[in-house]
Design a protein around this nucleic acid. Structure first.
Lengths: 101, 101
DNA sequence: TTGTTCCGTAAGTCATGACTTACCTATAAG
DNA sequence: CTTATAGGTAAGTCATGACTTACGGAACAA
């Protein structure tokens, strides 16, 4: 929900690997697990975390679950970072000017 | 060094709180710890992680250590995300078109 | 109905990491 | 030189989380 949840979701290397694979295109759980060094249940658990963070979404197709990027949640995270860069880099410039005086 | 290290550094709520305070302006270690619910050594340890990730940098002023945002490292993370948004959202659009067919 | 596939959930293990207190060094002040 | 301030480091504790195996349910096939 919050950007904190999203960043924490991306904090795990395995979860980031899953997320980046989904960024390349939708995939089923088994296909994801086949390309990763962890078990399928582990992938399921990570997908749940990513879904709770609204970074991915799930679509049921028969007995398969197709996961894909959630563009709305991703956009929320991007907005947070975009604002953050502005604030941070601006504050840094101001601190330089203050330090020079 | 890598963007993975940076994202993992921001994965911890306490570390993110420290980072956001530094984004508002440079600060000494004690001043940071005074505004946080953890001890000063804990803050030192988090600052080390942030510094290893090149998200913050250190400047010695007498016996104080002034920490501030590292604009170069921050820019690297921003570049990664900027590229990522493009890839992810583009792939999502393409998957929609493919799914419609 | 009986299997087979695909996947989520439960439960348990094990490592990691986020803290703490105690201690040490270094700078500054008296 | 002694004392106080600022902060990094070591060592230990404790919780969390990243896995595993085992199991259960749901959809298609025969």
């Amino acid at each position: 929900m919050t950007y904190g949840t999203k960043i924490e979701a991306l904090g795990s290397p395995t979860r980031r690997a899953i997320f980046e694979r989904l960024a390349a295109g939708p995939s089923a759980v088994g296909a994801l697990a086949a390309g990763l060094p962890v078990s399928r249940p582990a992938v399921s658990q990570h997908l749940k975390a990513l879904k709770d963070a609204r970074l991915v979404m799930e679509e049921r197709r028969g007995r398969a679950r197709i996961y894909s990027i959630d563009p709305k949640g991703v956009a929320e995270l991007r907005d947070y970072f975009d604002r953050f860069w502005d604030v941070a880099l601006d504050a840094y410039k101001r601190s330089l000017e203050a330090g020079d005086a």
